[in-house]
Design a protein around this nucleic acid. Sequence first.
DNA 1: CCTTGAACCTGTAGCGACTACAGGAATGAG
DNA 2: CTCATTCCTGTAGTCGCTACAGGTTCAAGG
Lengths: 143, 143
Amino acid sequence: MVEEDPGVSIGTLARQSGCKIETIRYYERIGLICSPPRTAGGHRVFATADRKRLTFIRRARALGFTLGGVKELLRLVDSGAYGCAEIHDLAAGHLKEVRGKIAELQRLEATLSDMTSHCERGERPDCPIIDALSDSLVGKPRA
Amino acid sequence: MVEEDPGVSIGTLARQSGCKIETIRYYERIGLICSPPRTAGGHRVFATADRKRLTFIRRARALGFTLGGVKELLRLVDSGAYGCAEIHDLAAGHLKEVRGKIAELQRLEATLSDMTSHCERGERPDCPIIDALSDSLVGKPRA
DNA sequence: CCTTGAACCTGTAGCGACTACAGGAATGAG
DNA sequence: CTCATTCCTGTAGTCGCTACAGGTTCAAGG
């Protein structure tokens, strides 16, 4: 029962995982994935496990996890005996952050929306948007 | 009618404008504000106009404008003869970006919310969150 | 006038998460 | 065997600051 894993080049892995070549090398450099074996000429040879790991990373990143968060997730997965609890807490914590960002952006949206609605693109020199940003008048730079 | 502007130190300006000292120096370096005159010993001396300009910048940044966007706004203001139209368009463009980011984050929120709700922090080894991220099984790193 | 301590100066490096070169060497299909 | 393609390393750039280190200047008190 010899399980052969022919191995793929970094370019093939990039196509399979959806990560760019440079990103894969970057992940290796920062220790997110392990350094793969090389050919006699020095080219990286990746295994199926690497494709799965990279796909995992890409999906977690797409959900907005930081690389630090991804590292945590992978650490739990790598440890084997992960319980749902820790994973859940990581995801819940991230969800909270995302909701915070949404709330913040919605505040900006309201302000910007209000500002632009008050400015009807008129040709008056006293633009309400500028007024809102200015302290009565913006200091011009030294001539 | 001699208008005196005694001038303030960078620390005072920082307190007045709400920008940090290092940030002010950084803005000077990238040309967002002009290099102020110096004392004999080389300390910067800022004028009232600088306080107004920095306050403007800080407010625009707080609304999420990039420094590039701020530069554009200031260019229009500096040119003097700005019409509302250009300002409006800049703000409207930024508003559109903010709305796009909100929509994107809301998609993440929905996915994360769904994932965490399916995981009840049980002690099962097959966590639904991990399953969702994995390609059936995450490849473990080489031993 | 002199001392002290706070504030200021320059220059550089670091953050996150890549991306983009330059200048080569290896690969693999014809 | 040729040659286009892929791959290699190393470095620097992106954005918007922030944080040093190691020195100089300023202003207030004695």
